[in-house]
Design a protein around this nucleic acid. Structure first.
Length: 555
RNA sequence: UGACCCAUGGUGUAAUGGUAACACUACUGAUUUUGGUUCAGUCAUUCAAGGUUCGAAUCCUUGUGGGUCAACCA
């Protein structure tokens, strides 16, 4: 029966393709995640990672991590390291050691010579401008290069001299000889190798010619035994070239297959590496791991969990249709996860003092459950006293009838403690409330079992005992852009949300906050989920707001 | 005036010729010592026109709309 259920589970279109192939006798599934180490991974990459590793897992296959490092101008070791960390953090394990396209440079070079020998590639002496001008347009065919019909001997000689470093950057180039009239621009004698005199993060100064993406990717797949080369839609037009190159070198039955899917777009954010890099370089954010960034490292610092991101990737599905996922789905996923696992803590973000005038004694201890969603999580003790802080928003002198919080003459429950009634307020010369004076019902203590403790009151407030309060700094993060599709505009930066970060310096938390370590997540009761920032020190606790709680009141 | 791809509620994703469904969002209500959670419910969907078929979201044709492609980027 359970088998039946599993069979009924719907497959995405890639899984359907593989499922069909397996039924037709194909035996293995081998995928790869192929980032270029020229930036940090973002939530869009997470979709691809979950897809590729997920496919391997589902079909008992393998998945490689391969760095597509064919352009030393843009690539750096810093990015390699961060990418490895992020993939691991997301919970995936690649097959063996990570791979590098640069590991295949020798083989790629040999294949290039082979193509030259067969008259299928030639060296072009023209400038990039000249080549571009002969390329034609999508609706007009291109013209053939005057160097297109050089002899094999001449081409080989020139190519070897390119490799030997006899020419400057841009002086010569190796092109495949395909079809300048092809309706597919990528087939109009695409560039295979260009000269770049620049040290490579892996191969050092061994090479001064580097292969282009198209001449690298399919062959790398072939070398690694990849069966399904899953990439995003913009490579759809490259597929004929992917296949053409493979046709030149393959002499076995095995052949990798490119399949394209629609990349992830998220509302209220930008996803392109170029734009993210701009935000970092121009200091609109504090770095790649700024908690407002849609990068994996930013989300980690913000307090997102790997589980919530994987679950998100599962929920958004995989298809070929352009899509913009509502960021509220991401928020739903992290709340869903954190609700189950985050211990509750009380913290007052905008404190105002509340004094219980008839409170007897100095202080006492109350006991509160750590997480009502997790019976294993137990209870903790919290100090309570005559003077406490509550949220400024939780008090109104004259409240509308739907206001379930504190106002003069009205009662509320202090979470885990007593029911209090507001009697009067003290204000400063500007009219700001500085103290709220209350009386409490001595018999109403939570859990005491008395009749008074069972009384129902409209609202329950979080609070912190004034003399025990721990000062914390809170960073309230909000969406980075205030337009739901900023990427649609060239001047997307004008849509940056000026309130995407609010720093609150005078927050007060209960003493248990001292037990937290960096990256620990808690729920501040009635506020949201917060994650201790890595910049916290002994003297200063910094909490990043991951996401607010859903607010059913929302004035 | 090219090639390739795509079109299902507000947003996503299913339904694989046989009752259009699931999730998110929004909104109701119940429960609640978090205006959270949980539970119950409501609103809302096949781009258009032809054709094939007993039967079409699904297959065909033609439109329409959208995306991608003219880096010595990936």
């Amino acid at each position: 029966m359970s088998d039946n259920l599993q069979e009924k589970e719907s497959l995405n279109f890639i899984e359907s393709i593989i499922d069909k192939e397996i039924k037709e006798g194909k035996t293995n599934v081998y995928t790869r995640f192929p980032p270029e180490p020229n930036g940090y991974l973002h939530i869009g990459h997470a979709k691809s990672i979950c897809l590729n590793f997920g496919l391997a897992k589902r079909f008992n296959g393998k998945c490689n991590l391969r760095f597509d490092d064919t352009n030393p101008v843009k690539e750096e070791v810093e990015y390699v390291d961060s990418i490895k960390e992020d993939v691991k953090w997301l919970g995936f394990e690649w097959e063996g050691e990570e791979r590098y396209a640069s590991d295949y440079f020798d083989q790629l070079y040999d294949w290039a010579e082979k193509l030259i020998m067969e008259g299928k590639a030639y060296v072009d002496d023209q400038s990039s401008e000249e080549i571009a001008s002969q390329k034609g347009t999508p609706t007009k065919p291109g013209q053939e290069s005057p160097y297109r019909n050089r002899t094999v001997d001449e081409n080989i000689d020139l190519f070897r001299r390119m490799k030997a470093g006899e020419f400057k950057d841009g002086e010569k180039i190796l092109r495949a000889k395909i079809d300048m009239a092809s309706p597919n621009m990528h087939m109009r004698d695409p560039i295979m190798y260009r000269i770049i005199h620049k040290e490579h993060h892996r191969t050092g100064n061994k090479w001064c010619i580097y292969p282009m993406y198209d001449f690298t990717h399919g062959q790398s797949d072939y070398i690694e035994g990849i069966t399904h080369s899953v990439c995003t839609l913009e490579f759809e037009n490259h597929r004929p070239l992917y296949d053409w190159y493979l046709n030149q070198i393959i002499d076995t039955e095995y052949r990798p297959r490119q399949i394209e899917f629609a990349r992830l777009n998220l509302s209220y954010t930008v996803m392109s590496k170029r734009k993210l890099l701009e935000l970092v370089k121009e200091k609109y954010v504090s770095g790649w791991d700024d908690p407002r960034m849609p990068t994996i490292s930013g989300m980690r610092r913000r307090g997102y969990t790997p589980e919530s991101i994987r679950n998100f990737a599962e929920k958004i599905g995989v298809a070929k249709r352009e899509n913009v996922i509502d960021v509220s789905l991401l928020e739903f996923c992290v709340r869903e996860d954190l609700n189950k696992r985050a211990d509750r803590l009380m913290a007052v973000l905008d404190p105002v003092k509340l004094i219980i005038d008839n409170y007897e004694g100095v202080e006492e201890i109350v006991s509160v459950e750590n997480n009502p969603e997790d019976s294993e999580s137990g209870f903790r003790d919290i100090p309570f006293s005559k003077e406490i802080f509550i949220e400024r928003d939780d008090f109104m002198e004259d409240a509308p009838r739907k206001f379930f919080r504190l106002s003069i003459g009205k009662e509320v429950r202090l979470k885990g403690a007593y029911i209090v009634k507001a009697e009067s307020v003290v204000k400063d010369s500007d009219g700001n409330i500085t103290e709220i004076h209350c009386t409490y019902d001595k018999e109403s203590k939570s859990g005491s079992g008395t009749e008074a403790s069972e009384r129902k009151v409209k609202g329950t407030l979080h609070w912190v005992s004034a003399r025990h309060a721990v000062a914390v700094k809170v960073r309230q993060y909000d969406r980075l852009f205030n337009n739901d599709d900023p990427a649609a505009f060239d001047d997307y930066k004008t849509y940056l949300n000026p309130d995407s970060l609010k720093v609150l310096d005078n927050c007060m938390a209960e003493p248990a906050i001292n037990l937290l370590k960096p990256l620990d997540t808690v729920q501040f009761q009635r506020q949201g989920y917060f994650c201790m920032d890595k910049d916290s020190t002994k003297g200063e606790i910094i909490m990043n707001r991951t996401v607010t709680l859903k607010d059913g009141w929302a004035k």
